[in-house]
Design a protein around this nucleic acid. Structure first.
Length: 650
DNA sequence: TACAAGTAAGTTTTT
DNA sequence: CTTACTTGTA
């Protein structure tokens, strides 16, 4: 017997949702597109629909919830649980990449994929490309050849946009067009390298899943039936491959709900295209479209600014946000004399807010680029204002964490040449050449530690080090928890690290302790390693990691990492030409995206919004130069955005 | 020939 | 604070 989804459910939800939200929640079968403005309760709508589906008899395990971060999915499932009980827990939720990871580990064998494949993050990808670049003799030529990060960018972007390499270079790198053949050769070698060694980069996860669904109809049927209801959040930030995956997964039923906001598309650098969301009805003919325009988050003054910002966009958007939260408060544009005064303004205002009883958890400082907050971080530390920073350089990207991970990855996948290289390069007397030669012998072997022992016997000076490594790998072979295995790695690695970084190894040791605490949560090495590649801890490095997560703290975040979040009080710093929009954004499309970024930043605020910029800014090449306010904020009427000038005594 | 150490320069946003 | 390139050394 199925519980009914009749009038009782409708009336139960009707009190809690507005008519548009209710319509989306009650929608059952067939494609649905929800165009949801900022703060219009889109998360709420997703949660209630999730709950409603489960209540009306859909097994939670048949629902697939694709979100931008796994945290977002977990949070939604948790909130649905509050409504319908623990049954909701079985919902499959996560990012496209994490879903692809799990699916390929289970079904990838039909593609000739070993289930212990290793995931390469962007840095790993660049390392491999760099290796191939020099191996192919492209590094040392009269003619400058693109560096590893440019190559990685081109190769990855072409794949994310589902373009030929030639198209990609013609469109975005025309000055490299006569090196197309060499670049294509690198791309091809990179692809072969990965296939031979059980390596998948981020793009492969999506591509190989598409390949599985396209070339193996029986698996497609099976998976499509298993995901009978698909929900995709933040659809405006999907790229063409992801759209194709949705199409393939929904092939047998078309039960897809896509939610997003074209005005908040900010991930084109990853191949996302806001036109994707416009094209959804073409991908799924018969799509029902529901718009959510009432904003429940912000005071009208903040929305007036947001509407004004987006009205300046060249592509016209169809929504105008409105709120019933009227009030006197308006956003404020603050001109500071220089960067440090800007930092002092933010810090002082935070102290005042705290005295007024505003929780630090309700305050965020947002910026375009991670390094924009450096000066502010010092000021906050000086005043003992606790903060955490999101986005930017991550703890997981530090050399010592990557080193420790590489040893574990080699143990999990002995064919992982990229990690072998990293492990071997740590040894004294081993450089790129020696390491590469050893990698070739070691990756083909079933007993790598035996090969290392042979090498040790032959080595002149570093025999002891090789023996130690060999012993480590032997001991990692025994079954143990990830934590125990990490302990073995650290026993071997810590002395090497102290040697290499005599000045700051205590700090690095603390990071590794933090890493141990993370490893403790995992029961299998495989899942630890996948998570570290796909959903690494989002905290940035720094002493702030030491602050107790339960204490109140101000959030410092890049705008990208602030997506989907909200705070009572928001500061946007460095709203100056050259920083925001970023200097590099010079073509029209990039500038449009910067504008949307400003829109996203502003709409994070509920009550108070302060936007600031310094009048004097330091430029490495020119010294001090005049800072001018971001073009997106120029010429706004004072009714929309009043200006305040910080005075001397401040 | 290959490695190590030292010097110079450059930094968007992220799965 | 990293990475890329240059110069010195075994």
């Amino acid at each position: 017997m199925r519980p009914s989804s009749g009038p009782s459910a409708r009336s139960k939800y009707a009190e809690l949702l507005n008519p548009a939200q209710l319509a989306a929640v009650m929608h059952r079968d067939g494609p649905l597109l929800v165009v949801a403005g900022a703060g219009s309760g889109k998360t709420r709508t997703l949660i209630y629909r999730l709950a409603h589906l489960i209540e009306s008899g859909v097994p939670a395990g048949a629902i697939l919830l694709l979100t931008f971060t796994r945290r977002a999915a977990q949070e939604m499932v948790r909130r649905a649980e509050l409504l319908v009980g623990q049954g909701a827990r079985a919902v499959a939720g996560g990012t496209f990449h994490s879903f692809a990871n799990l699916t390929l580990r289970r079904h990838g064998t039909v593609l000739g994929l070993n289930s212990n494949f290793t995931i390469l993050d962007r840095a790993d990808m660049e390392d491999v490309i760099n290796l191939l670049r020099s191996r192919m003799g492209l590094a040392a030529r009269e003619r400058r050849f693109p560096k590893k990060n440019a190559l990685a960018e081109i190769i990855s972007m072409a794949r994310n946009k589902a373009r030929e390499l030639r198209e990609e270079i013609e469109a975005d790198y025309p000055f490299l067009i006569d090196q197309l053949d060499e670049i294509a050769a690198v791309a091809q070698a990179y692809d072969r390298y990965k296939r031979e060694r059980g390596l998948l980069d981020y793009d492969d996860l999506l591509y190989r899943l598409a390949e599985l669904l396209e070339h193996h109809p029986e698996r497609q049927q099976q998976l499509s039936r298993a995901c009978r209801y698909i929900m995709v959040d933040e659809y405006q930030d999907t790229n063409p491959i992801q759209a194709r995956l949705v199409r393939l997964l929904a092939a047998s039923h078309d039960n897809v709900m896509a939610v997003g906001d074209d005005a908040q598309s900010i991930y084109s650098f990853r191949g996302a295209d806001f036109r994707n969301i416009m094209d959804f009805p073409k991908l799924f003919p018969g799509t029902r479209i529901i718009k959510l325009e009432e904003n429940y988050r912000s005071l009208q003054g903040i929305l007036n600014l947001a509407n004004e910002l987006i009205a300046g966009a060249s592509e016209k958007y169809t929504k105008a946000l409105y709120s019933r939260r009227t009030g006197e408060l308006r956003p404020l544009l603050v001109r500071a004399e220089d960067e440090h005064l800007q930092s002092r303004f933010v810090a002082q205002r935070i102290l005042e807010l705290r005295e007024q009883g505003v929780s630090l958890d309700q305050i965020a400082v947002l910026f375009r680029s991670s390094f924009h907050s450096f000066d502010l971080e010092l000021e906050l530390a000086r005043l003992d204002i606790p903060f955490i920073k999101r986005g930017g350089f991550k703890f997981i990207e530090t050399a010592h964490i990557k080193d420790a991970l590489a040893h574990l990855r080699v143990a999990a996948n002995p064919a992982d040449a990229a990690s072998w290289l990293r492990v071997l390069l740590l040894l004294k007397g081993v450089g790129p050449r020696t390491a590469e030669a050893m990698v070739d012998r070691v990756t083909g072997a079933t007993q790598p530690e035996a090969i290392l022992m042979e090498q040790a016997a032959r080595a002149r000076s570093n025999g002891a080090a090789l023996r130690a490594l060999s012993e480590l790998l032997g001991s990692l072979r025994a079954p143990a928890t990830p934590l125990a295995q990490l302990a073995l790695v650290l026993e071997y690695y810590l002395p090497l690290m102290r040697d290499a970084h005599p000045d700051d190894y205590p700090k690095r040791e603390r990071d590794l302790e933090h890493f141990s605490a993370i490893a403790q949560r995992y029961r299998s090495l495989q899942s630890l390693l996948s998570d570290m590649a796909l959903e690494p801890p989002s905290d940035s490095i720094g002493d702030v990691l030491a602050t107790d997560a339960n204490d109140e703290h101000v959030t410092l975040s890049t705008i990208h990492s602030a997506k989907g979040l909200e705070w009572q009080v928001v500061f946007i710093i460095w709203a100056a030409e050259g920083r925001f929009p970023a200097l590099r954004s010079n073509d029209a499309q990039a500038l449009e995206e910067e504008r949307r970024l400003m829109y996203v930043a502003g709409t994070r605020a509920r009550d108070e919004l302060y936007i600031s910029y310094p009048v004097q800014m330091f430029d490495r090449t020119q010294g001090f130069v005049m800072g001018t306010v971001s073009r997106f904020l120029q010429d706004l009427k004072p009714e929309i955005l009043p200006v305040a000038r910080l005075e001397e005594e401040f």
